[in-house]
Every structure is written in structure tokens, then in C-alpha cells.
């Protein structure tokens, strides 16, 4: 698995997205999947940048691996910030009334709905969020 370690700050988002895009470039990744992966990488990384170490700054490690046959990508996000399971929260209410009343929860909803598998674990002092996306054309 290839990986990069970056300071967990929103300014590093481009670098993280470029890293994942570069890993996928060699494969026949459908445009739609690429877009969804970009969005999901943003949601997860920005979440880590905003909350994991607040008010301090720490590092985040992003690992990426592509399997062939079937073609799929696994991306892991690791940080050693406060233990936090983003999957534990109830899904955001997406009725128009609820959307007008409150912000939040939509990023993780996009992660859950656009990936094929999402898993959280806390191990050796690290938050580990793993996402899997199938890349075979639908």
C-alpha cells in the first residue's frame, strides 16, 4: 500500500487528492467514480483537519491501494487524534425542513452513500477510516 503523511490542515487537501488521483491514473477509473472519490477524500480529510487534533495540529496518513479483478480501490485515513467514530452518528435528516434548520452530517452521508464499503476502527492510538470503491464500469 502506498501512503503519504501530511499535516492535517485543510491547505493540504490538494496534495492528498493529487496523491489518490495519481494512484488511480494507471487504471481505467470511470470518471464518475473518480469524482465521488475526490469528494469523499475531501470530506474525510477536512473532517480530520477540523476536529482530530483541535486546537493543536497533527499529522494524517493516507494509504491507497488498487486491486485488479475486480478493479477496486481501498483508501485508509489514519490519525492519532481524539478517538472519533464518524460512522457512529445517526444519518443526517435530509428532509427540506431539517436541512434548513441545521448544518452538518452531510459530508459523512456522502461518504456512506457513494462508497461501496466504509469501516472505522481505533487501533494503537489511531483512528483508522477505510473506504472501498469498486471501479468496474456499471
Amino acid at each position: 500500500m502506498k501512503s503519504i503523511i501530511v499535516p492535517a490542515v485543510a491547505e493540504e487537501l490538494d496534495r492528498v487528492q493529487e496523491f489518490v488521483e495519481a494512484e488511480l491514473e494507471a487504471y481505467d477509473c470511470p470518471m464518475r467514480a473518480m469524482m465521488q472519490i475526490n469528494i469523499v477524500v475531501e470530506e474525510i480529510f477536512v473532517n480530520i483537519a477540523s476536529y482530530a487534533y483541535r486546537p493543536e495540529v497533527g499529522d494524517a496518513e493516507i494509504c491507497c491501494e488498487v486491486d485488479e479483478d475486480p478493479l477496486r480501490v481501498t483508501i485508509q485515513f489514519l490519525d492519532h487524534g481524539k478517538p472519533f467514530d464518524p460512522l457512529a452518528q445517526e444519518d443526517a435528516d435530509t428532509s427540506p425542513e431539517a436541512l434548513l434548520e441545521r448544518d452538518g452530517g452531510l459530508g459523512i452521508l456522502l461518504v456512506k452513500k457513494s462508497m461501496d464499503a466504509v469501516d472505522y476502527s481505533y487501533k494503537d492510538g489511531k483512528n483508522i477510516l477505510t473506504i472501498i470503491k469498486n471501479l468496474d464500469e456499471e
Partner: peptide
Amino acid sequence: NKMVMEVFEMTGFAGL
């Protein structure tokens, strides 16, 4: 576009 619309659909924005 279709991909942006999908994001609106997943999050309820299509109805808002």
C-alpha cells in the same frame, strides 16, 4: 450535470 445532481439527491438538496 449528472454527477452534481447525484450529490444533491444523496443529501436531500434535490428536494430543497
